[in-house]
């Protein structure tokens, strides 16, 4: 009885210590956020947070949301990139064209919807939407 209670209190002490550590790391992490500049600008995040009804004067929280969003975008983009790389190369007629397409990685709706579906976002690509896969290519090919 005595033993168990002492071990219990020990556990509690340990867990409270762990929590204290967690708190410290969390505070540290939040403080470190101020040094990190996320790609998503604070103003944008603030704007959309305000739109959603969230109000908090703490800038660190805005940063936290920005970083979380950036991570989300990066994850989805990485998945889409994998989808893009895994897809068999499109059939090409011209030799010069082939060279170009092999090295081009284009974010397409198809890959994006596949990547997003893993994150619980169901995106259905419009069947007849007039958006050719080469949309982003024209200026680049003009440059070359």
């Amino acid at each position: 009885m005595n033993n168990t209670s002492s071990s219990n209190s020990q556990q509690q002490q340990q867990s409270s210590e762990a929590r204290h550590d967690d708190d410290a790391t969390l505070t540290e992490f939040l403080a470190s956020l101020m040094d990190y500049t996320p790609t998503i600008p604070d103003e944008l995040v603030e704007h959309y947070l305000a739109k959603s009804g969230f109000q908090c004067p703490d800038v660190r929280l805005v940063r936290l949301v920005a970083v979380a969003t950036q991570k989300f975008v990066a994850d989805v983009a990485t998945d889409a990139l994998q989808q893009c790389k895994a897809r068999p190369a499109p059939v090409v007629k011209d030799k010069r064209d082939k060279q170009q397409k092999e090295k081009r990685l284009i974010l397409t709706m198809e890959d994006l919807s596949k990547a997003l579906s893993e994150y619980g976002v169901n995106v259905k690509h419009q069947e007849y939407f007039a958006d050719s896969p080469s949309t982003g290519m024209d200026p680049a090919s003009r440059e070359e």
Binding site: T39, I40, Q70, V73, A74, A77, T78, A80, L81, C84, K103, R104, L105, I106, L107, T108, M109, Q126, F129, D131, P133, T135, G136, M137, A140
Partner: peptide, 13 residues
């Protein structure tokens, strides 16, 4: 961010 990940281009949609 897409550029950072490695994409070179994108569909507008």
């Amino acid at each position: 961010m897409c550029e950072t990940v490695g994409f070179q281009s994108f569909q507008q949609s």
